[in-house]
């Protein structure tokens, strides 16, 4: 995909902004233009949270999302508000444990054990990086190597090992394709 719109949706504190920032960094390194916006609620923890990217090969005219090509859901909270924004045939990646109830529709759903994988690695907070790995594994949004590089550059050293393992796990899930329906 050259020009696309992607949303990371979840609840506050799930690291959605970090995922969006890392993906944006990777896409910019690949020569794309990226505009990043976020929901801006009065509270910092809990509650609906989202991070949106508008990606283009050249100049971005309108920087906010209008029709999503990719939707990553880490919690059930943003499901209702985000589903109507999907473009037909959009890619939806959802955490099977925390965002298990996805309505039927004209989209390519991948319901995956994102948070379970992170928990198995020892820290649920790495769920956001597992999700990035899935995007790399599916291979439609961004190159694997670029994403891995920005993770190496962009996360604190003491969490690097955990994040690299989370990323690898996500890649594995993505390459397997998951139970698409």
């Amino acid at each position: 995909m050259e020009n696309f719109e992607i949303r990371f949706g979840g609840s506050g504190g799930q690291g959605l902004q970090l995922s969006a920032r890392l993906l944006a960094d990777a896409l910019i390194r690949e020569g794309r233009k990226v505009a990043r916006s976020q929901s801006y609620e009065p509270t910092s923890r809990g509650g609906l949270s989202r991070a949106d990217l508008v990606v283009a090969a050249k100049r971005i005219d309108y920087p906010l999302i209008t029709a999503l090509d990719v939707l990553v859901l880490l919690d059930q909270l943003p499901v209702a508000v985000s589903m109507p924004l999907l473009r037909p045939g959009a890619l939806v990646i959802a955490d099977a444990r925390r965002a298990g109830e996805i309505p039927e529709g004209d989209h390519d759903l991948h319901l995956l054990p994102l948070s379970e994988s992170a928990l198995a690695l020892g820290n649920e907070r790495a769920t956001n990086i597992v999700a990035l790995g899935v995007l790399a594994g599916l291979g439609e949004v961004c190159e694997h190597d670029t994403l891995e590089t920005v993770i190496r550059d962009g996360v604190p050293p003491r969490f690097l090992d955990l994040n690299l393992r989370a990323f690898a796990k996500g890649v594995e899930l993505g390459e397997a394709g998951g139970p698409g329906r």
Partner: peptide
Amino acid sequence: DEVIGHLVET
């Protein structure tokens, strides 16, 4: 406006 103020671009 707030949108441009909180938007991230290169």
